[in-house]
Simulated scan of single mutants.
Amino acid sequence: MRFRATVAGVSGALALSALVVPGAHAADSGSSSSYRADVAKVQEAARAASGKTAYTGSTGTDEGVPYDLNVTFSNFKVNGGKAITVGVSNHVTVPVTYTLTHGADVDITAEDFLNGPYLYKGSFDEPDNMLFGNAPGTCSSTSATVASCKAVIDIYPAEGELLNAHAGAWKAAGLAIAYNGEDPESEDIDLSKVGIADQGGFTSPNVQRYSKLTVNASPEPVKKGRTVTVTGKLSRANWEDNAYHGYTGQSVQLQFRKKNSDTYTTLKTVKTDSTGNLKTTTTATVDGYFRYSFAGTSTTPAVKAAGDYVDVQ
């Protein structure tokens, strides 16, 4: 399912219909070719049902309302527990593993049974944004009613899937759909014959704006006891104009390691200015490498500049 973040202020079922567009990057064969669009249709119908949701209260007897599918999810592990860093142009793939538990009446091996994870920002009922994969997950049964599953969530920042405000905390969810012979591409699909399970509230790592950090120490070479000026810049991805801009007002450590050492020590802490630039001075003592190191925030990952060597004479 492809969501355009530029209209992500819309709430409820309207948000789903407003945000969904077909997944152009999905695989070209089988259920993967239209996975995002197909599940969007069912999820939207389920959430739009008056007084009902996709996961409670529906029996499937109402026209156009999917029924509750006897499937639950657990044991989500998103991106190996590591933060999801997203730049401005590269396609980001996020691996996810999870457990699917189902009733004996649910055939998870059926060709038209699809399931997969997604990430959502904000509340589960009225998310600010969602991120899906191009293809459904794949599962291996570990018992008659339990399966171990894996999938990938695909993120395309250059296509407007994220706003800067979406950086930070997200949650994971699982979605399963049994079409039971209904054609998801048909305009006449009988959604009352389609089952859906939509379950959220699972832990996910933060989604962060990719960061960059530079350093330059001068003069090179320098006489012992003289001043070394160290400049640099901390920048991060802007998901709204697909460029990198300075990260202002952030504390960054100036660090140094001697020529034959593997260990950096912190000399001082410097703050970025209004354009993300860094500048400070220190005294030249021995040959070695200067670098800046940023510890990161909830919205921006930690980053270290490559050391810049200074020959002290």
Rank of each mutant, 00 (worst) to 15 (best):
A5E: 06
T6P: 01
V7A: 12
G9K: 15
S11T: 13
G12D: 13
L16P: 00
S17D: 08
L19C: 09
L19H: 00
P22N: 11
P22V: 11
G23E: 15
S29Y: 08
S32N: 13
A37D: 13
A40T: 09
E44W: 11
A54R: 01
S58F: 06
G60T: 15
N70Q: 14
S74K: 10
F76D: 00
V78C: 09
V88P: 01
S89Q: 13
H91Q: 12
T93A: 11
V94H: 09
T101H: 09
I108D: 12
N115L: 13
Y118A: 00
K121W: 09
P127D: 14
D128V: 08
L131G: 02
F132T: 04
G133M: 06
S140H: 08
A144V: 05
A147W: 04
D154V: 00
P157Y: 01
N164M: 09
W170T: 03
E182G: 06
E185I: 00
E185V: 00
S186M: 10
D190M: 03
S192G: 15
K193S: 07
K193M: 07
G201C: 10
G201A: 06
N206D: 15
R209M: 04
P219D: 07
L234I: 04
S235K: 12
Y244K: 03
G246I: 06
Y247G: 01
S251I: 15
Q253F: 07
Q253S: 14
Q255D: 09
Q255S: 11
T263F: 07
Y264V: 09
T266F: 05
L267S: 08
V270C: 10
T280K: 05
T282A: 13
A284R: 04
G288L: 11
F294N: 02
V310W: 02
V312F: 04
